[in-house]
Amino acid sequence: MTINGDRQTHIFRKLMRYGFTLFLILSLNFALPRMMPGDPIANLLGEQARHNDPQTLELLRAEYGLDQPLHIQYFRYLQSLTRIELGYSIHKNSSVARLMADRLRWTLLLVFPSVVIGSILALLLGSLAGFKCRSPTDYVLTALFLILYTCPSFLMAMLLLSIFSFHLGLFPLGNLTTGGTTGLKYVLDMAWHLILPVISLSLLGASYKFLVVRNSVSQIFDEQFVVAARAKGLTERRILLVHVIRNVLPPFISMAALSFGFMVSGALIVEIVFSLNGMGTLIYDAVMARDYPVMQGCFLILTVFVLAANLAADILYSVADPRIGGKGT
């Protein structure tokens, strides 16, 4: 079999494995919310309605199909997934698809640039720190990113809000827009609202990737092939950009893929600090209220994104390192 054939078989096997994993996770998504103590309908009616209203409780249970045995509920759940029907939220008076579309849009606008900026920052500064290992540049950068890495996300977000919004008045105190604007003004207003949350998430995301890249680069510089490259007379810059970075890419791709995959789970703490309506708060609220349809919908989209990102990482691995996916792997 040719190398290309081996790679196709490798990707096909991966796809099969991912398909099975998807089914397994979807089943868990059904089971886990129902294993938690608490009743979504009782939550819906509130503490003062529970004892006098058993009939309403039963009617509402029937409306959401919660009066059926678990295996029937599971079968209906799988059926609805094949029709891509996510159902209706028990608590938020809206369809799950509409809720998720609203929240996903804002979450992607918030988290996607943060992951990209954070990853680029980590790759560039981590490579620089690794390249100039044990130099003042390395010490300063490593110390800075260690501080960021150990800083809790709520503290970082609250500090940014307090300094730049409250004391300096440069940014708004929260929310996604001011309201009442359209066209270009709306876009600029939205960007103004998103700057601090994106900075906060970018710095937090960059901090741990920086440390991995920095350590990888500094280790690879001690490898024999770098010595050989130096002996051939290649410049340090060329060694870094062509030979070292390429070897750092697999672990970096792995981290970046995970970040992209979990992107749709939102950023709960940052959403709360900056009063943003994202997937993080949607999932949190759904778990707190035992809103099964919303939980299932959110976990479904999260599963798909994480698996897709991992699959993409697997494929990119084999591009970055031709030995992966070849014969014998």
Binding site: M158, S165, F166, L173, N175, E271, V273, S275, L276
Partner: peptide
């Protein structure tokens, strides 16, 4: 009615006169 997801940001807005 302006909604905040935490009391800290809400109190900052009150202090700033918003």
């Amino acid at each position: 009615i302006r909604m905040f997801k935490n009391q800290e940001a809400m109190m900052m807005a009150l202090q700033k006169g918003e």
